[in-house]
Amino acid sequence: MKSISLYEDKGTFLNRTAPESKLLYILTAVSVPALTGIEWAGIAFIALSALLLLTGRVLKKTLPVLGVSGFIMLTVVVIQGMFRRENMTPVFSLGPCVFYREGLYFAFQIILHILNILLSFCVLMLTTKPSDLIESLVRRGFSPRFGYVFVSVFQIIPQMTETMGIIMDAQRSRGMETEGNLLTRAKAFLPLISPVVMSSLVNTRERAMALEVRGFNSRCKKSFLNPRVKTAADRYIQAMELALIASALGWRILLWLM
Protein backbone atom coordinates (compact mmCIF):
# COMPACT_ATOMS: atom_id res chain seq x y z
CA MET A 1 0.00 0.00 0.00
CA LYS A 2 1.47 3.24 -1.21
CA SER A 3 0.06 6.37 0.19
CA ILE A 4 1.57 9.65 1.28
CA SER A 5 0.44 9.44 4.82
CA LEU A 6 2.15 9.52 8.16
CA TYR A 7 -0.60 7.52 9.75
CA GLU A 8 -0.18 3.96 10.88
CA ASP A 9 -2.67 2.01 12.95
CA LYS A 10 -0.99 0.87 16.15
CA GLY A 11 -4.19 -0.02 17.96
CA THR A 12 -3.47 2.49 20.70
CA PHE A 13 -5.85 4.62 22.71
CA LEU A 14 -5.12 7.58 20.46
CA ASN A 15 -6.03 5.57 17.36
CA ARG A 16 -9.40 4.84 18.90
CA THR A 17 -10.05 8.42 19.93
CA ALA A 18 -12.45 10.34 17.71
CA PRO A 19 -10.82 12.76 15.25
CA GLU A 20 -12.96 15.56 16.69
CA SER A 21 -11.40 15.11 20.12
CA LYS A 22 -7.96 15.43 18.59
CA LEU A 23 -8.93 18.45 16.51
CA LEU A 24 -10.30 20.07 19.62
CA TYR A 25 -7.06 19.20 21.36
CA ILE A 26 -5.09 21.25 18.83
CA LEU A 27 -7.44 24.14 19.39
CA THR A 28 -7.01 23.85 23.16
CA ALA A 29 -3.24 23.50 23.04
CA VAL A 30 -2.92 26.56 20.84
CA SER A 31 -5.59 28.79 22.30
CA VAL A 32 -5.10 28.29 26.03
CA PRO A 33 -1.48 29.59 26.17
CA ALA A 34 -2.34 32.36 23.71
CA LEU A 35 -5.42 33.48 25.66
CA THR A 36 -3.92 33.29 29.13
CA GLY A 37 -0.49 34.49 28.12
CA ILE A 38 0.98 32.09 30.67
CA GLU A 39 4.30 30.79 29.45
CA TRP A 40 4.30 27.52 31.35
CA ALA A 41 0.91 26.68 29.85
CA GLY A 42 2.70 26.34 26.51
CA ILE A 43 5.37 24.19 28.11
CA ALA A 44 2.74 22.09 29.81
CA PHE A 45 0.98 21.41 26.52
CA ILE A 46 4.25 20.52 24.82
CA ALA A 47 4.91 18.04 27.60
CA LEU A 48 1.36 16.69 27.32
CA SER A 49 1.66 16.29 23.53
CA ALA A 50 4.97 14.50 23.94
CA LEU A 51 3.40 12.21 26.51
CA LEU A 52 0.46 11.51 24.22
CA LEU A 53 2.77 10.78 21.31
CA LEU A 54 4.72 8.43 23.54
CA THR A 55 1.61 6.52 24.62
CA GLY A 56 0.46 6.53 21.00
CA ARG A 57 3.82 4.91 20.14
CA VAL A 58 4.50 7.47 17.46
CA LEU A 59 7.12 9.61 19.21
CA LYS A 60 9.78 8.26 16.88
CA LYS A 61 7.82 9.36 13.85
CA THR A 62 7.66 12.85 15.26
CA LEU A 63 11.42 13.22 15.06
CA PRO A 64 11.68 13.71 11.28
CA VAL A 65 8.95 16.32 11.50
CA LEU A 66 10.93 18.09 14.21
CA GLY A 67 14.10 17.72 12.18
CA VAL A 68 12.65 19.67 9.28
CA SER A 69 11.36 22.45 11.49
CA GLY A 70 14.49 22.31 13.62
CA PHE A 71 16.33 24.16 10.92
CA ILE A 72 13.82 27.01 11.04
CA MET A 73 14.03 27.09 14.82
CA LEU A 74 17.80 27.29 14.65
CA THR A 75 17.57 30.24 12.27
CA VAL A 76 15.24 31.97 14.70
CA VAL A 77 17.72 31.48 17.55
CA VAL A 78 20.65 32.78 15.51
CA ILE A 79 18.88 35.79 14.08
CA GLN A 80 17.02 36.86 17.20
CA GLY A 81 19.87 35.96 19.55
CA MET A 82 22.34 38.09 17.64
CA PHE A 83 20.38 40.85 15.97
CA ARG A 84 17.17 41.60 17.86
CA ARG A 85 16.85 45.34 18.36
CA GLU A 86 16.21 45.09 22.13
CA ASN A 87 19.39 43.03 22.63
CA MET A 88 21.42 44.45 25.58
CA THR A 89 22.75 41.72 27.84
CA PRO A 90 25.34 39.43 26.21
CA VAL A 91 25.11 35.83 27.39
CA PHE A 92 27.81 34.01 25.42
CA SER A 93 29.76 34.30 22.21
CA LEU A 94 30.82 31.91 19.50
CA GLY A 95 33.91 33.41 17.92
CA PRO A 96 32.86 36.84 16.67
CA CYS A 97 29.13 36.16 17.18
CA VAL A 98 27.62 37.47 20.38
CA PHE A 99 24.28 36.17 21.62
CA TYR A 100 22.06 38.30 23.83
CA ARG A 101 19.65 37.34 26.56
CA GLU A 102 16.68 39.38 25.23
CA GLY A 103 16.89 37.92 21.74
CA LEU A 104 17.38 34.40 23.01
CA TYR A 105 14.40 34.73 25.30
CA PHE A 106 12.27 35.94 22.41
CA ALA A 107 13.51 33.06 20.23
CA PHE A 108 12.66 30.68 23.06
CA GLN A 109 9.08 31.93 23.10
CA ILE A 110 8.73 31.53 19.37
CA ILE A 111 10.13 28.04 19.53
CA LEU A 112 7.66 27.19 22.27
CA HIS A 113 4.84 28.26 20.01
CA ILE A 114 6.16 26.34 17.02
CA LEU A 115 6.76 23.20 19.07
CA ASN A 116 3.37 23.40 20.68
CA ILE A 117 1.53 23.74 17.37
CA LEU A 118 3.69 21.12 15.69
CA LEU A 119 3.36 18.50 18.39
CA SER A 120 -0.36 18.94 18.86
CA PHE A 121 -0.80 18.54 15.09
CA CYS A 122 1.35 15.42 15.25
CA VAL A 123 -1.00 14.01 17.88
CA LEU A 124 -3.79 14.30 15.32
CA MET A 125 -2.00 13.47 12.09
CA LEU A 126 0.11 10.55 13.24
CA THR A 127 -2.72 8.71 14.92
CA THR A 128 -5.70 9.41 12.66
CA LYS A 129 -6.58 7.76 9.37
CA PRO A 130 -6.84 10.68 6.92
CA SER A 131 -10.13 9.39 5.52
CA ASP A 132 -11.59 9.18 9.06
CA LEU A 133 -10.51 12.71 9.76
CA ILE A 134 -12.13 14.05 6.61
CA GLU A 135 -15.21 11.94 7.11
CA SER A 136 -15.70 13.39 10.56
CA LEU A 137 -15.39 16.86 9.09
CA VAL A 138 -17.84 16.05 6.29
CA ARG A 139 -20.33 14.82 8.88
CA ARG A 140 -20.07 18.24 10.48
CA GLY A 141 -20.89 20.02 7.27
CA PHE A 142 -17.51 20.25 5.58
CA SER A 143 -17.90 20.05 1.78
CA PRO A 144 -17.69 16.43 0.57
CA ARG A 145 -15.99 17.62 -2.61
CA PHE A 146 -13.15 19.27 -0.78
CA GLY A 147 -13.03 16.30 1.50
CA TYR A 148 -12.73 13.97 -1.47
CA VAL A 149 -9.96 15.98 -3.10
CA PHE A 150 -8.12 16.12 0.19
CA VAL A 151 -8.15 12.38 0.78
CA SER A 152 -7.77 11.17 -2.77
CA VAL A 153 -4.70 13.18 -3.74
CA PHE A 154 -2.72 11.30 -1.14
CA GLN A 155 -3.71 8.01 -2.75
CA ILE A 156 -3.83 8.92 -6.41
CA ILE A 157 -0.62 10.89 -6.72
CA PRO A 158 1.68 8.01 -5.76
CA GLN A 159 -0.19 5.78 -8.20
CA MET A 160 0.01 8.35 -10.98
CA THR A 161 3.70 8.98 -10.54
CA GLU A 162 4.17 5.26 -10.91
CA THR A 163 2.28 5.21 -14.22
CA MET A 164 4.21 8.22 -15.41
CA GLY A 165 7.44 6.49 -14.57
CA ILE A 166 6.35 3.58 -16.74
CA ILE A 167 5.47 5.82 -19.68
CA MET A 168 8.71 7.76 -19.37
CA ASP A 169 10.72 4.55 -19.28
CA ALA A 170 8.90 3.25 -22.34
CA GLN A 171 9.64 6.43 -24.25
CA ARG A 172 13.22 6.46 -23.15
CA SER A 173 13.73 2.86 -24.19
CA ARG A 174 12.50 3.82 -27.65
CA GLY A 175 15.72 5.78 -27.87
CA MET A 176 14.80 9.28 -26.87
CA GLU A 177 17.63 11.77 -27.15
CA THR A 178 19.36 12.33 -23.91
CA GLU A 179 22.46 13.81 -25.44
CA GLY A 180 23.23 16.90 -27.47
CA ASN A 181 22.78 20.55 -26.71
CA LEU A 182 19.99 21.99 -24.67
CA LEU A 183 17.68 22.61 -27.61
CA THR A 184 18.01 19.05 -28.92
CA ARG A 185 17.30 17.70 -25.52
CA ALA A 186 14.37 20.06 -25.01
CA LYS A 187 12.95 18.94 -28.35
CA ALA A 188 13.40 15.33 -27.38
CA PHE A 189 11.74 15.97 -24.07
CA LEU A 190 8.49 17.12 -25.64
CA PRO A 191 7.43 13.78 -27.11
CA LEU A 192 8.66 12.24 -23.90
CA ILE A 193 6.38 14.31 -21.74
CA SER A 194 3.36 14.68 -24.01
CA PRO A 195 1.98 11.15 -23.60
CA VAL A 196 2.33 11.68 -19.87
CA VAL A 197 0.35 14.89 -20.01
CA MET A 198 -2.20 13.47 -22.44
CA SER A 199 -2.76 10.35 -20.43
CA SER A 200 -3.18 12.29 -17.23
CA LEU A 201 -5.71 14.63 -18.91
CA VAL A 202 -7.70 11.70 -20.22
CA ASN A 203 -7.41 9.99 -16.87
CA THR A 204 -8.66 13.01 -15.00
CA ARG A 205 -11.68 13.30 -17.26
CA GLU A 206 -12.45 9.63 -16.98
CA ARG A 207 -12.07 9.77 -13.23
CA ALA A 208 -14.46 12.71 -13.03
CA MET A 209 -17.01 10.78 -15.07
CA ALA A 210 -16.55 7.68 -12.96
CA LEU A 211 -17.29 9.76 -9.86
CA GLU A 212 -20.33 11.27 -11.55
CA VAL A 213 -21.90 7.90 -12.31
CA ARG A 214 -21.42 6.92 -8.70
CA GLY A 215 -23.57 9.75 -7.49
CA PHE A 216 -20.78 12.08 -6.41
CA ASN A 217 -22.88 15.04 -7.52
CA SER A 218 -26.09 13.70 -6.10
CA ARG A 219 -27.89 16.26 -3.98
CA CYS A 220 -29.13 13.59 -1.58
CA LYS A 221 -28.13 13.65 2.02
CA LYS A 222 -25.03 11.50 2.24
CA SER A 223 -24.97 8.44 4.46
CA PHE A 224 -21.87 6.84 5.92
CA LEU A 225 -20.70 3.26 5.84
CA ASN A 226 -18.86 3.52 9.12
CA PRO A 227 -20.71 4.63 12.21
CA ARG A 228 -19.44 7.75 13.89
CA VAL A 229 -16.93 6.92 16.60
CA LYS A 230 -17.60 8.69 19.81
CA THR A 231 -16.84 6.75 22.93
CA ALA A 232 -17.64 7.75 26.49
CA ALA A 233 -13.97 8.72 26.79
CA ASP A 234 -14.38 11.05 23.84
CA ARG A 235 -17.27 12.74 25.53
CA TYR A 236 -15.18 13.42 28.66
CA ILE A 237 -12.17 14.53 26.68
CA GLN A 238 -14.16 16.95 24.56
CA ALA A 239 -15.97 18.35 27.61
CA MET A 240 -12.63 18.89 29.30
CA GLU A 241 -11.13 20.56 26.26
CA LEU A 242 -14.09 22.88 25.92
CA ALA A 243 -13.96 23.68 29.64
CA LEU A 244 -10.26 24.56 29.36
CA ILE A 245 -10.83 26.84 26.40
CA ALA A 246 -13.80 28.46 28.11
CA SER A 247 -11.91 29.12 31.32
CA ALA A 248 -8.92 30.52 29.41
CA LEU A 249 -11.33 32.81 27.63
CA GLY A 250 -12.90 33.77 30.96
CA TRP A 251 -9.45 34.51 32.38
CA ARG A 252 -8.66 36.72 29.41
CA ILE A 253 -11.88 38.68 29.82
CA LEU A 254 -11.28 39.02 33.54
CA LEU A 255 -7.77 40.43 32.94
CA TRP A 256 -9.18 42.79 30.40
CA LEU A 257 -11.91 44.03 32.74
CA MET A 258 -9.53 44.69 35.63
Partner: peptide
Protein backbone atom coordinates in the same frame (compact mmCIF):
# COMPACT_ATOMS: atom_id res chain seq x y z
CA UNK B 1 -18.08 1.08 -16.43
CA UNK B 2 -14.99 2.46 -18.12
CA UNK B 3 -12.03 1.01 -19.89
CA UNK B 4 -9.37 1.80 -17.36
CA UNK B 5 -10.02 0.18 -13.98
CA UNK B 6 -7.46 2.41 -12.31
CA UNK B 7 -9.43 5.56 -13.13
CA UNK B 8 -12.50 4.16 -11.46
CA UNK B 9 -10.87 3.72 -8.10
CA UNK B 10 -12.01 6.77 -6.18
CA UNK B 11 -8.85 6.97 -4.11
CA UNK B 12 -10.90 8.12 -1.15
CA UNK B 13 -11.11 4.69 0.47
CA UNK B 14 -8.57 2.36 1.96
Amino acid sequence: VFQNPFNQVTGAKL
